[in-house]
């Protein structure tokens, strides 16, 4: 009995020994920052004369201030716009290009690499490339823009045109990610359903809507979920292209948090970040439980 008990204790100890490094890493890298930033979001920070940074507990005051702040709601509206329109465009384009890349066309390998380039470049660099490309006065598209008459549109003065620029830039950057995932999904699809459909005389469109799209749903909903969560963090493109302007027309909630952090209002920054986490969690959960679940059921 004694030997068994000692053995069990030793086993537990060695298990704990193996788990401990991972637990420490999770605690230091995730749990501690999560708790400390939550506490920070419930404080007011100020500098006392000669006393450095002072934190005063204010409960949910930062949250209530934000919820009554038009700028917070404005930036959240922009974020949702970029997320839903941007991700929809990226998915549509990504699926189309991925399907094209599965065709046996001339230069297929070349195009596969070419389409992935934006994803391989540092996001800030992508934003600067887009800034040059979207400069319709002296950029590479200037002659086309001038010929088609849209060079002189108020791209940076009009809120909707500025938003369009950000969406175009973000789509250019992230469509390759959707392409690569969907391409892998497409190449893994079985051949049998297509052979059967061909025997039955199905048109290409019918094959796409009745076979490809449903079979691809598990991968599609997965990639959309990843992009949804990622898109909420959009910062690089608006900060480089428009600085969040005009006014706050292209300022996202993440960018609002960054600008607030730059003024060293750490408590408000933490509160903005937490509110964004709540929004992302709600939308992610809704998407996962309603849309993704349903799609997976359809896919069988």
């Amino acid at each position: 009995m004694k030997t068994t008990s000692t053995n069990n204790r030793n086993k537990t100890r060695s298990e704990l020994g193996f788990l401990l490094p991972a637990l420490v890493v999770v605690f230091v890298m995730s749990i501690f920052p999560l708790i400390s930033s939550l506490l920070l979001s419930m404080t007011k920070s100020s500098f006392s004369t000669g006393g450095g940074l002072q934190l005063e507990f204010v409960g949910f005051q930062n949250y209530s201030n934000l919820l009554s702040d038009a700028r917070f709601w404005g930036t959240l509206g922009n974020t949702l716009l970029f997320v839903f329109i941007g991700v929809a465009l990226q998915f549509g384009l990504g699926l189309g290009i991925a399907m094209l890349l599965t065709q046996k066309l001339f230069g297929q390998t070349f195009f596969r690499v070419l389409f992935l380039i934006p994803m391989m470049i540092t996001p800030v660099a992508v934003a600067y490339i887009m800034k040059m490309v979207l400069n319709f006065q002296i950029g590479p598209l200037a002659p086309i823009a001038k010929a088609l008459g849209f060079a002189d549109l108020p791209w940076f003065a009009d809120a909707n045109l500025s938003r369009l620029l950000v969406i175009v830039g973000d789509t250019w950057q992230w469509t390759p990610f959707v392409i690569i995932v969907l391409l892998a999904g497409l190449e893994a699809l079985p051949n049998e359903p297509y052979e059967a459909a061909q025997v039955e005389g199905a048109t290409p469109w019918q094959m796409f809507t009745q076979i490809t799209f449903p079979l691809l749903l598990p991968v599609s909903t997965g990639v959309v979920l990843i992009r949804l969560v990622e898109a909420f963090k959009i910062v690089d493109m608006p900060i480089v292209l428009t600085g969040g302007g005009p006014g706050i027309a292209t300022e996202t909630t993440s960018l609002f948090a960054y600008y607030t952090w730059r003024t060293f209002d750490q408590s408000k920054t933490a509160a903005i970040a937490y509110l964004l986490v709540v929004v992302v969690t709600i939308i992610g959960t809704l998407y996962n439980n309603i849309i993704r679940k349903r799609a997976l059921e359809v896919a069988g």
């Binding site: 500098f47 700028r71 940076f156 003065a157 009009d158 809120a159 600085g243 302007g245 005009p246 006014g247 706050i248 027309a249 600008y259 607030t260 730059r262 003024t263 060293f264 209002d265």
Partner: peptide, 23 residues
């Protein structure tokens, strides 16, 4: 004054709103 960066950030947004014709 303390918080100069915060005053400036508020000015940045307002000026942009006026120059773009939003306000």
């Amino acid at each position: 004054v303390p918080g100069a960066a915060r005053y400036q950030a508020a000015m940045d947004v307002g000026v942009s709103e006026a120059l773009s014709g939003q306000k």
